[in-house]
Design a protein around this nucleic acid. Structure first.
Lengths: 355, 355
DNA sequence: CTGTTAGCGCCTTCAA
DNA sequence: TTGAAGGCGCTAACAG
């Protein structure tokens, strides 16, 4: 139904090559021809058939984004960041939502093909060495966002720093018994690299402050409010319970607040809480948290990818870039200052006797 | 780089047509040939070039989804629903995120072309009659999700019913002074059809209960917590303030709760609140709300579209289907029963302080 | 400068 | 049953 280049050529009284030339600004076209072509194009409301173009050019003009919608509510911002770059480019964004490992592996093997996409962005998931090898063989540039691998370019936050930021904040407030609730090696994606790094940051901060690392203060659960609630309940009913809990995500931090509420404890009077992500709701809840550059991470990832696509000569052996996005501690009202000598019972508000 | 059908043919010792036949199950192939082709395909790890296939078949095998990421946090569920259907089909999902009216109109005119997509799903946005006419001319099936238009198939909730559900609940609890905070004709997308319908439901319920419709109890603001907070503050400082507020979304309901908190009022003791959407956080906040079938709406929309694509003979003049998805009132703790004679100060349980 | 023509890779008549 | 060949619409050599 749509017009073809041939019809435009006929109407403009020129050859198809000339039409193609003006449409692609290849130059070497007389003002005369250019004019009539442009006129015909506009008369016929002509738009080149993208599929034919792709076949002829041997490019797909599409970027595949493989992303698990549900590991974190924050993925939307990352997608927006990616989209903000691609929308301005010639590339379409085709989205592959991963909800099972099978699907993930299917996408990992089927999507990175030259005839399927010109580039791939993988969000939050981490491919295995074997999968990466296949990517390299395919010749399709792949960029990781919120994840990383030694042989692939990546954009992520400095999770160790994030862990330190949160922990140090609590230490500065006088807390000594600080628990860390990690976003565990999820059954499905076991990609808790970030969470593990945050834990490292947590431990570094504790150690540097000369504070003991209490094994009992380490819990790990899935990225869900319910599971965090259970874990937090265990922490808060420990004989020597922590005075503060640092959760690997806001979602989990909310679970912690829920657990506290269940136990009749108040936040921050009875227990301080720090989250991670700075979801919209964190503001309403007064949750102190670590804010990531979500949108930016997506934007940068897309930029790196487009760059890689345009620099096909870049040797695969070169060390891929690994960018770290800035982090920011957002202080709100979920943490309280403790008196110098860490006394769990001596809360700031003496009117409330614990235990 | 990838293998072509010709190589497969050569290796299998047959013609390309035969290879094509077995790959597409066109039949009329000897078991003999089939075997060798299958063998060659597997040996070479051959996968047909999608672009070439599309060009040859005159189909794009892609579905375009035009969606404003940010009108509501709920869009993700709808996308998932759409994806759940497309992932099982031969179609790729290419996403167009709309953040400005310019972009929306650009997509509306550029995307629905036969050579660009085999079908289009528009989420939450409502095209104009003129745009719909262009869609029809293009011959590309279009389905609306969370929106509607007389000439296009659509899937949405029964917003009038939703408005009634929420309002009736408050009336049943003895409230008489009920305010409605609508999701206004947003500056950018002015597509508050749903909100307007909910308002109709609200008014119907009020009227049927013989309650007066107080103009002062109608406020409209954008779909944001901040704006809702401002509007709610106005409502709550009215000389004869409402005892309950029904907000057009959970996001706005949270803004209402925020306003109450600002004014030192408690929810539900001093003011009852009902939201809409049932976001994850509504549970934690104990917010009574109306739950939509988000995922289902996307799923149904995609199903309708695929159906339309496979039934190209269906006359455009036929009346398009308009499906309504079920709604459910989720009762939590944000509403309180009022004594028979509407007394705003007579709270139910003063002993229970929230937050 | 410009038209003709040969692909891009696949599907599909059309003979054989 | 099967292979050869044309065509999908566009780009890019290659001769003028």
């Amino acid at each position: 139904m749509p017009t073809t280049i041939r019809e435009v050529a006929r109407r403009a009284g020129v050859g198809v090559a000339t039409v193609s030339r003006v449409l692609n600004n290849s130059g070497f076209v007389s003002t005369q021809s250019r004019q009539s072509v442009l006129q015909a194009v506009s008369d016929l409301n002509y738009v080149p058939n993208p599929t034919a173009r792709r076949l002829s050019l041997g490019k797909t003009f599409t970027i595949a984004v493989i992303v698990p919608f549900f590991t974190r509510p924050s993925f939307v911002e990352r997608l927006r960041g990616i989209d903000s770059v691609l929308a301005e480019s010639d590339y379409d964004m085709i989205v592959f939502n991963v909800e099972t490992t099978q699907r993930r592996d299917k996408f990992f093997t089927e999507v990175p093909r030259r005839d399927r996409a010109d580039g791939v962005i993988i969000v939050t998931l981490t491919p295995t060495d074997g999968q990466v090898a296949v990517f390299e063989e395919s010749g399709v540039p792949v960029v990781l966002v919120d994840s990383d691998h030694p042989r692939l370019p990546s954009v992520r936050e400095d999770s160790v720093l994030g862990g330190r930021l949160a922990t140090q904040h609590l230490i500065d407030l006088g807390h000594r018994k600080i628990a860390y609730l990690s976003d565990v090696l999820d059954d499905v994606f076991k990609s808790a690299a970030a969470s593990a790094r945050r834990q490292t940051g947590y431990q570094q901060a504790m150690r540097e402050a000369g504070l003991p690392l209490n094994e009992a203060y380490l819990k790990s659960g899935r990225h869900s409010r319910e599971e965090a609630r259970r874990c937090a309940a265990e922490l808060l009913t420990l004989p020597d319970r922590p005075t503060a809990i640092f959760a690997a995500s806001d979602t989990q931090a909310i679970g912690v607040m829920e657990a506290a509420r269940d136990l009749g404890m108040r936040v921050p009077e009875d227990v301080s809480v720090v989250g991670y992500d700075d979801l919209d709701i964190a503001d309403y809840l007064g949750l102190t948290t670590v804010r990531q550059s979500l949108f930016e991470s997506g934007r940068r990832g897309a930029e790196l990818l487009l760059h890689a696509i345009e620099q096909p000569h870049r040797n695969t052996r070169d060390a891929p870039v690994h960018e770290l996005m800035p982090l920011e501690l957002v202080v709100r009202q979920s943490c309280i200052r403790l008196s110098a000598d860490d006394a769990p019972r001596m809360t700031h508000d003496p009117s409330h006797a614990t235990n």
